[in-house]
Design a binder for these strands. Structure first.
Lengths: 335, 335
DNA sequence: ATCTATCGTCGAAGCGCTTCGACGACCCCC
DNA sequence: GGGGGTCGTCGAAGCGCTTCGACGATAGAT
C-alpha cells in the first residue's frame, strides 16, 4: 500500500501538498495538481482511513441502528438501510451497521471510540432509554421516528397523522361515512411505537373534523387475529363500508377473510392501506394506499445528518408529507 | 475524550503499560492492572479506533456486502445481515454495510483504505466480476454462495444439492414417484446464481438415484407466472403428486392457485418448500420444508472470517447440511 | 517603486495508539 | 553465589495523515 509520502515523492512535491490536492483546502496550481493526481492514479493510492480519522477527527462513517426484532416490517427496514447506505455514499460516507439489541452501550461504544461521525437510529420508542445517552454524545444524531420528548435531537419520519387524515379524506370523498381502522398489533402500541400513536391520533382527529362514524381496533397477527378483529368491528360498528389498514402483516389475511366471508373488495367494502408500495402492489388486488416511502425517509435522514455535520441549521422535526395512491381497492359504497 | 495518556497519568504508569493491560499481550501485575482498570472506568476511557487502526493495522471491522436488488429475498438478506452483525460482535468486531451496486470499486475502496480487516460477500454469481478483485485484496474474504471458480476464496453456504436430495428422499419415502420442481425465476438462473444451479443439479441426480419420474421448471413471479408454470407441469408430467418449491415468492400464489383449482394440500398434492422457517410457517398451511438457516450461515461466515484473521486454516468450501422439517403439507399420494 | 494581499508550496508538529527493545528485579538451578 | 530465565515496566519510535505557520513569489494598489 503506497502512502502519501510515496505519492509526494513520485510527484516531486511535499506530502502536505498532496493532502491539499486531495482535500482542496488550499489552492494548488493546475500543473502541480495534475502531477499529483497522476502519481495517485499510477500508484493506486488510497488514503489510510485510520490515519485520516486520527489526524482530522473525521471518520466519514455513519452509524445506522436497526431493530433486529423479526416480528415486524423486515423488508421496510432493509429498504431503509439500503436507502441510507446509498444516500450516505453520495456524500462520501460509509455506514456501520448496529443492531438495536446492543442498546445504549453499543451507541456509546462506537461514539466514544470515534468510529463514526454521526448516528441514525431507527425504531425509536416513546420513552426510549437510548435518547438520554444520545443527547450526551458529541456526535449528532438523527432519529427515524418520534420519541415522547424529542428535545435536543433531530427527528425525521413520515407524517403519519397527515397520512391518517389523507385516508379518511379519500374515503369520505368517495362517500364513505362508517369507517374502521385496523391498527397494528397491541404489542406495537404497548411498546409505545410513535408512528402507531400518531396515526391513531390523526385518524381520530380527522374523523371528528369530517364528521364520520369511525372506530379503531388493534389487530393481532395471523389469520386468527384478523378474524377476531373483523368480528369485533362488525359488532361495534355494523355496516362499515371501508377499512383503513395500518398493519402490513394483517393485509393478506384480511383480504383472505373478506373473500371467505363473501365480501368483495371494493364492491362491498373498500380498503385503504398504509404500507410500502410493493406490498400494496403485491397483493391479489392492488391496494389504494398511502405509501410508506422508506427510501425517501432514509434519504432525508442522511441529508439531515449531513447538514448537522456541516454545522448548518435544521428544523428539529422533519415530517414527510404522505401521498395517497389510488389503485383498485376503493369504490363508492353500495347504497 | 480522555486518551491513553490521561489514563496512564491517573494510574501512575506509562502509556505502554495501559496498552498492555488492554491487549493482554504482556504480563502485568495484578495490582497495576487493577489500578489501570480503575482509571479507565473512572475516566470513561475508550481507545480511539482510528489511532488504534493506524498503530496496529487492525480495524476490528468487517465489510458485509449485501444485494440491494428489491426483487428477491429481502427478509432473508436482513436475517443474514443481523446474524453477521450479532456474530461479529461476539468477536469484538463491527460491520460496515456495503451494497452490491458499488461493485468492485466499493470493495477496493474499503479494502485499500484499510477500513476493514476482512470482507463477507453475499449474492455471488457464477462469473462474478468481483471475484478476481477479491483475490487481489490483502484482506481475507468469505463468500456466502459459490462462484464458478472458487479457487483462492473461502465459501460458505447451505448445501443446496443435499437439500434437493433430502426433499426427494422424503417424498419418495411417502410413496411419491412423480414429482416436479418449481424453481426460481428464469432471471435467477440467467444471473448464474449458484444456489439455483446446485439445487437443480442435486434434484436431478437424486431423482435418478431414486428412480423417480421428475421434471423441473423455473417459475416467473406473480400469480400469472405460477399459473403458467403449473399448467406446463401438468402438461409435461401429468399425474404429478408432489411439488418441490424452491422459490419463496411463488409459494403463496402457488397455494392460491392449487386451492382455486380444487386441489387440496396435502390430500391431492404434496408440497415441500425450500425457504426460511418463518415463511414456511406463515402460510395458510404450515409447509414441510428444508429451512434456509440464514442465521447459521451468517454465523458460519463470521466464524470462518475470524479463523482466517487468526491465520488458522479452514477448508475452502464449507456447506451446511440441510434439515428437513415435517409440517402439514406432505402426505402419501392418493391412490 | 513600495507596500500589502493573495497564491502556492513546504516543513514540522501532532493526532492517540501499539510495539519493540531495554532494563531492573526476582527466582531457580547447579 | 553467580549465570540464565522470566516477569513487569518504561521510553521512544513510529503508524499515515492533516493542518498550521512560514515564506518566497507574484500581482494589485498607491
Amino acid at each position: 500500500m503506497p502512502t502519501i509520502n510515496d505519492v509526494a515523492r513520485a510527484a516531486g512535491v511535499s506530502p502536505s501538498t498532496v493532502s491539499y490536492v486531495l482535500s482542496g483546502r488550499r489552492p494548488i496550481s493546475a500543473q502541480t495538481r495534475a502531477r499529483v493526481q497522476a502519481a495517485i492514479a499510477e500508484l493506486g493510492f488510497h488514503p489510510h482511513a485510520g490515519a485520516r480519522a486520527l489526524a482530522s477527527s473525521k471518520t466519514n462513517v455513519l452509524a445506522l441502528v436497526v431493530p433486529l426484532r423479526v416480528d415486524v416490517n423486515v423488508p421496510v427496514i432493509m429498504q431503509f438501510a439500503t436507502a441510507v447506505v446509498t444516500a450516505a455514499r453520495t456524500h462520501n460516507h460509509d455506514v456501520l451497521l448496529l443492531t438495536k439489541d446492543e442498546g445504549t452501550s453499543g451507541l456509546e461504544r462506537v461514539a466514544h471510540s470515534t468510529m463514526v461521525d454521526a448516528l441514525i437510529v431507527m425504531d425509536v420508542e416513546k420513552d426510549d432509554v437510548r435518547i438520554p445517552a444520545l443527547r450526551k454524545l458529541k456526535q449528532p444524531t438523527v432519529l427515524i421516528g418520534l420519541p415522547g420528548d424529542p428535545s435536543g435531537i433531530v427527528c425525521v419520519d413520515l407524517d403519519f397523522a397527515a397520512a391518517a387524515a389523507e385516508t379518511l379524506r379519500h374515503l369520505a370523498w368517495h362517500g364513505h361515512r362508517r369507517i374502521a381502522l385496523v391498527g397494528p398489533s397491541p404489542a406495537v402500541y404497548r411498546r409505545g411505537t410513535s408512528y402507531a400513536e400518531r396515526f391513531l391520533a390523526g385518524f381520530t382527529e380527522a374523523s371528528a373534523e369530517l364528521g364520520l362514524e369511525t372506530m379503531t381496533h388493534p389487530c393481532e397477527p395471523g389469520q386468527e387475529g384478523v378474524k377476531s378483529c373483523l368480528a369485533d368491528i362488525d359488532a361495534e360498528l355494523p355496516g362499515v363500508t371501508a377499512l383503513v389498514v395500518h398493519n402490513e402483516e394483517a393485509l393478506r389475511p384480511l383480504l383472505d377473510q373478506l373473500r371467505a366471508a363473501g365480501r368483495r373488495v371494493p364492491e362491498d367494502i373498500s380498503v385503504v392501506a398504509v404500507c410500502p408500495r410493493d406490498v400494496a402492489l403485491g397483493l391479489p388486488i392492488p391496494l389504494t394506499s398511502v405509501d410508506i416511502p422508506s427510501h425517501d425517509v432514509g434519504g432525508l435522514a442522511v441529508e439531515t445528518v449531513m447538514k448537522l455535520l456541516d454545522g448548518r441549521h435544521t428544523e428539529s422535526i422533519r415530517l414527510l408529507p404522505p401521498t395517497l395512491v389510488e389503485r383498485d381497492s376503493c369504490a363508492r359504497p353500495a347504497v
